[in-house]
Design a binder for these strands. Sequence first.
DNA 1: ATACTGTGTATACGACATATACACAGTTAG
DNA 2: CTAACTGTGTATATGTCGTATACACAGTAT
Lengths: 121, 121
Amino acid sequence: MHLVISLKSNQPIYEQLFEQIASQILSGELHPGELLPSIRSVAKDLGISIITIKKAWELLEEKRFIFTKQGVGCFVTKFEPKKLKNKKRSEVLERLSNDLKFYKQLGLSLEELLSLIREEY
Amino acid sequence: MHLVISLKSNQPIYEQLFEQIASQILSGELHPGELLPSIRSVAKDLGISIITIKKAWELLEEKRFIFTKQGVGCFVTKFEPKKLKNKKRSEVLERLSNDLKFYKQLGLSLEELLSLIREEY
DNA sequence: ATACTGTGTATACGACATATACACAGTTAG
DNA sequence: CTAACTGTGTATATGTCGTATACACAGTAT
């Protein structure tokens, strides 16, 4: 598991962590049932507070990406491939829908948007 | 000019206002040279603080969407059509690029993303 | 001169993000 | 059984941010 944080970013640290782990789970980099490193060791490695890691992990657990066992640690949830795909979809949609609203307001056509994305992706 | 704010949204009020006005400018709803209502009247109409409006206007001015004349008011900047198009593009890109980063991390293919957008737009 | 405009400053409050510290409960390995 | 690990909960603190009200000043227009 590979994590990086930027202190310059607008995005709070815990959200950055959430995103990285969620995407590693959804992309298959982190495997179902896999044990995540302890919040203490991640905090130490990244040089940040345990509380911040805890918050990221809580978000992950809230959205069922992981489950935790007190005294043991935090595990990647086991999803069926179909469930995984749905989850991926809903994470994207969650982020996308506000953006699409904005683009529509701007008067951006679907074709314009698609072509922009083709260029940038 | 039509503005609405949601107190429930995660997005700060000043940002909501910025987006609405920027998009109204970029979509042609607000015309070049047009005078915006005074920060005091908008604040009164929306039932919020002048400082909040001021912040939104400052953001708009920072990004050259408007210019202000002390004692007079705030005016929509005059853009050449080409410049307007570029500005629209860069507003979209600014928002899009972090999102695309996330989608890539998720292992979402371009085709998957495009098809999702086609469904939702 | 009056009523409007934007600008600047001050103060205040609540929410949020993040920090350190400590104690407790649970688990695991030696 | 003990020590070292794990997560959980609580406390306190600080800085930043968003937003509020209030006031004064400078500029503009009628």
